[in-house]
Design a protein around this nucleic acid. Structure first.
Length: 420
RNA sequence: GGAUGGGUGGCUGAGUGGUUGAAAGCACCGGUCUUGAAAACCGGCAAGGGUGAAAGUUCUUCGUGGGUUCAAAUCCCACCCCAUCCGCCA
């Protein structure tokens, strides 16, 4: 949701930034709607004001025992006109709102222009890629050979894009999630939150999932939606609230199940557990004041990286180009873990500064000396638990098909050092 | 699911058709007093929008959406949510 005042103040700049998202200039059309809307508001309110005055006069006349029939007749006439104007004005306002909330967020100056993921920029990498004496296996090969990963049964239970884990692998996934949350609490100062995974339409709208991306979501009865990420409920902590600057930043984390229809991903990543309809993820959300949000993005990315460092998984950090970013983002870092079984890096975390985009949708504000301003919201995975399990398995696999448990996870596995 | 009672400003809470955008208290901010603090006293304090250089002025908002009326926090309808009891249940 864009701030119309920003567009009024500098329409050329708005069009220049919109172009980075490969959109045609919008400002002329928007400003036309805007001035039409304001003209209608002015006319409507003049009538409303006159009506209020006449109504007050009725009260006055009646108190002094006079006859108010004439005034009443006049106001009755007026009401017809007001209703007409109101209908026209609210339609124009709705159009304007739709346009402003439909345009994606504008990239930060540090974000490179680009068409797709091929234009993303490598920022840094970490860790050395292991050399294997034999060809490294993919996680599903390892898991199925261990008898601890059963996709066939998951298909029988639910369908494609689900999985089941058994024994030590099930426990390892749980260990990974617990480790992540504990690290965020103890070392990063985040506050853990337990959340609903079903939310209402307003909550989904606030973070930008609705109305445009409903095909990516599971909707259940009674107007509930399954969350595709804990970003949705966590970010809504700022909905309809006015924070004092002292309260910010607020840094939250939650480990939840996530549900995605993967509607546009037919045929992609069908083997294994990289892309599923249900997966668990530890999410980080920060509610920040505008002047701090870019620093908070660096901090959040660092929190995510610390997880992979602790688990001894090589990774690289990519700065997404303008058209690879999600619609809400001002700036996004993707963290990609090395998967030796696939011989490639795969996204395991995505940290975004959404600026005021979501905050304006949900009316999240902060008090300042110059009045209330929209807060900034940030979200990042810290990390996707299922994909981290995949990365642990592939990076710590041994020649015999067993998996070495990274040292930091052993306390969560009753000291166990090896699976299989 | 059934019954009852409720949803008013950051919070508590008055308010059943017209000087109520809303009493009072708390919180918060500024001031007086004080060596400093507290207390006391004085003053300020909702949000969003239109207009305006500004001061100001004006509109909207008392769970949400409709309706009645010249006029609605107040009356009517629907829905949502909360509390308590009953039923059911992890």
């Amino acid at each position: 949701m864009h701030d119309i005042r920003v567009i009024r103040d500098n329409p050329e700049e708005f069009d220049r930034l919109v172009a980075l998202r490969d959109l045609a200039p919008q400002s002329v059309m928007i400003l036309e709607l805007d001035s039409e809307n304001r003209a209608l508001i002015t006319r409507k309110e003049a009538l409303l004001s006159a009506r209020n005055n006449l109504s007050a006069k009725v009260a006055e006349v009646k108190r002094s025992g006079g006859d108010s029939a004439e005034i009443i007749a006049e106001v009755q006439q007026m009401k017809i006109e007001i209703a007409k104007l109101e209908a026209v004005q609210s339609a124009v306002a709705a159009d304007l709102h739709d346009v402003l909330s439909g345009i994606p967020n504008l990239p930060d100056t540090s974000v490179p222009y680009g068409k797709d993921e091929n234009d993303n920029r490598l920022i840094r990498d970490w860790g050395t890629l292991r050399t294997f004496s034999t060809l490294p296996k993919q996680h599903f090969e390892l898991g199925e050979a261990l008898g601890m990963m059963n996709f066939q049964w998951a298909t029988q239970l639910a369908g494609a894009r689900f999985n089941t884990l058994f024994g030590d692998l099930a426990r390892l996934e749980r260990a990974i999630g617990n480790f992540m949350v504990d690290l965020h609490i103890a070392k990063h100062g985040l506050t853990e939150v337990a959340l609903p995974v079903l939310v209402n339409s307003t909550t989904m709208y606030n973070t930008g999932q609705l109305p445009k991306f409903s095909e990516d979501l599971y909707q259940v009865s009674d107007d509930y939606w399954l969350i595709p990420t804990a970003e949705v409920p966590l970010t809504n902590f700022g909905a309809d609230r006015i924070f004092s600057s002292k309260e910010l930043p607020i840094r939250l984390t939650a480990w939840t199940q996530c549900f995605r229809r993967e509607a546009g991903a037919a045929g992609r990543d069908m083997r294994g557990m990289l892309r599923q309809h249900q997966f668990s993820k530890v999410e980080m959300v920060t509610i920040a004041s505008p002047e701090n949000s870019m620093d908070e993005l660096e901090r959040m990315t660092d929190c995510a990286e610390n997880i992979l460092k602790a688990l001894e998984i090589p990774y690289r950090v990519m700065l997404l180009c303008s058209n690879d970013m999600g619609p809400g983002a001002v700036k996004t870092y993707d963290i990609e873990a090395w998967l030796p079984g696939q011989d490639t890096y795969r996204e395991i975390s995505s940290c975004s500064n959404c600026g005021a985009y979501q905050a304006r949708r949900m009316a999240g504000r902060m008090k300042t000396d110059q009045g209330n301003v929209a807060i900034h919201t940030l979200n990042g995975s810290g990390m996707a638990v299922g994909r981290t399990l995949v990365a642990v398995m592939e990076n710590h696999q041994q020649d015999d098909g067993s998996i070495a448990v990274p040292e930091r996870l052993r306390p969560y596995m009753a000291g166990q050092e090896c699976i299989g």
